[in-house]
Design a protein around this nucleic acid. Structure first.
Lengths: 221, 221
DNA sequence: TACACTACGTGCAAGTTTGCACTCTGCGCA
DNA sequence: TGCGCAGAGTGCAAACTTGCACGTAGTGTA
C-alpha cells in the first residue's frame, strides 16, 4: 500500500523518524514545562520523563533545556529551508521564499513556534535564548540563499547582497510574528496560524517589491 | 515531584516502559488492521509502520501477527496475576482472584481484550489463536495458584485441586466474557467495560460459593 | 513447469537508548 | 566557613532498534 510518492525526497528512514519524534517530544515537553511551571522551575529529569525518554538521552540530543527551546525555532526554519531548496535554482530568491512558506501544507506546523513566541513575551529572561536562535536562523538563511545564487545565476552575487537579503528575510519573519501576536494574541487555532502564515508570506512580498507603496506604481506592464 | 509511592513495586525502569509501550502498540496495530482490513489482508510491514517501529523490531517482539494477538489476552491476564500475587499469602485463592480483578482501577484496561473478543466472533479463523492464548492463560493461572498454595497453606494442595481450580477460574472468565458480549455487544464504553469487570468478579464469586443457589442457603453465620 | 514477485523469518553489524557512576557547581544551613 | 544535597553534564558498557542481506515459501503468470 505504498503511495505513488510524487515528491522526490527518498522517504525518511525509521531511524530519522524516531530521532525527529524524540527531538520534538523534548522541545514540546520543555515548552509545556515553561508554560505550566515557569522557566527554571523544572529539571532535565522532569523533561525527560514528560518526553518519555531517559535523562541521558536528553543530553544525547541537547546540551540544555534552552538548547531544546532553540530547536523549536531552528527546526521550523529547517522545514522552510528544505522547501526552499526544492524550488528551481533559477527562481528569484524572494519568490522561492514565499513559495516555500506556502508549501507548508499544514499551518499547524507553526504552532510550537507561535507558542514559544508568546511564552518568550511573558518571560523576558528567555529572550536571550530566542535571539540566539534567530541569529542562527539568519545564518542558515544566508547559507541557503548563498547556495541558491551560486547555482542559479550567471555571476554569483556579492556577500553584502546575500547577507543583507538573508538578514532582511529574517527581519520580515520576525515582523510578521510581532504583528500576528499583537493581532491574535495567544490564539493558536488553525485559523489564527493560517493568518500568521499569510503575514509571513506578505512580509516576504513587501521585500520582493522593494517596499513599494501600492498607490504610486500600481502595476508594471 | 515524586509521589509517596504507597505500593511496593520498584517503579518500572524506562527500558521496561518502552518495551511495554512497544508491545502494546504492536498489538493495538494488529487489532486495528484486522478490524479495518480483515485478517490476512495486511503485512508485518504494515503493522510495523502503524506501530512506529521497523519490521525487524516487530520480530524482536513477536514471531507472527497471531502471536501479537495472543499477547493482548495474555498481557491482560498478566496484569491481573500481578495484582493476585500482591494479595496476602494466607488469603483464600478465590477471594484473591476477586480482589485482583477489583484492583484493576481502570476498567478500560479490559478494552483491548474486549475488542479482540468481538473481532474473534466475526472471524472464526482467529478462534484457534485465541483458544491457544486462553490455554496459555490457564497454565499461568495454575502456576500462580500453585505458588500461592505452596506458601500460604499448612500442607500444599494436590495437583488435581490446583489444576481444577485454575481451569475453573479461566472458564468463569470466559463465561463472563460470553455473557457480557451477548448482553452489551460491541459497546466498549467505560460503563460497558465496567459491567464486564463486574461479571468477571461475579463469576469468581459463583465459584467461591460452590455455585450455591442463593435461595437454599441464603447466608451462613 | 519455470519464472518473477511478494512477504515471512532470521543473522549480523552499526546506530541509538539506557543505567550507572562519576565530577562539578550552586545553594541552604549549622 | 564547612557540610550535605540536588541537579547539570559526561564516559562507558550493556540493552535495544534498525537496515540489510539472505534463505524460504506461496502465488500468479507465461
Amino acid at each position: 500500500m505504498t503511495l505513488p510518492e510524487d515528491d522526490l525526497q527518498p522517504a525518511p528512514s525509521r531511524r530519522e523518524l524516531n530521532k525527529a519524534a524524540t527531538r520534538q517530544a523534548i522541545s514540546a515537553a520543555v515548552l509545556t514545562a515553561i508554560r505550566v511551571q515557569g522557566p527554571g522551575n523544572f529539571t532535565v529529569e522532569d523533561i525527560a520523563q514528560a518526553a518519555g525518554i531517559s535523562r541521558r538521552t536528553f543530553f544525547n540530543y541537547f546540551s540544555s533545556t534552552e538548547d531544546a527551546l532553540s530547536a523549536i525555532t531552528i527546526g521550523f526554519l529547517d522545514n522552510v529551508l528544505q522547501q526552499f531548496r526544492l524550488r528551481p535554482a533559477g527562481e528569484p530568491v524572494l519568490e522561492s521564499a514565499q513559495a516555500a512558506l506556502m508549501s507548508l501544507a499544514d499551518p499547524m506546523t507553526i504552532a510550537p513556534l507561535a507558542e514559544l513566541f508568546g511564552i518568550v513575551s511573558e518571560h523576558p529572561g528567555l529572550l536571550r535564548t530566542e535571539l540566539e536562535a534567530w541569529d542562527q536562523c539568519t545564518e542558515q538563511i544566508i547559507q541557503a540563499v548563498s547556495e541558491r545564487v551560486a547555482t542559479g545565476h550567471a555571476q554569483p552575487l556579492d556577500d553584502l547582497h546575500v547577507r543583507a537579503l538573508g538578514g532582511s528575510l529574517m527581519a520580515c519573519g520576525k515582523a510578521a510574528m510581532d504583528v500576528w501576536f499583537a493581532r491574535c494574541g495567544k490564539d493558536f487555532s488553525r485559523d489564527s496560524l493560517s493568518t500568521l502564515r499569510g503575514l509571513l508570506i506578505e512580509s516576504m512580498h513587501l521585500l520582493d517589491t522593494g517596499f513599494a507603496v501600492p498607490e504610486r506604481h500600481a502595476t508594471l506592464p
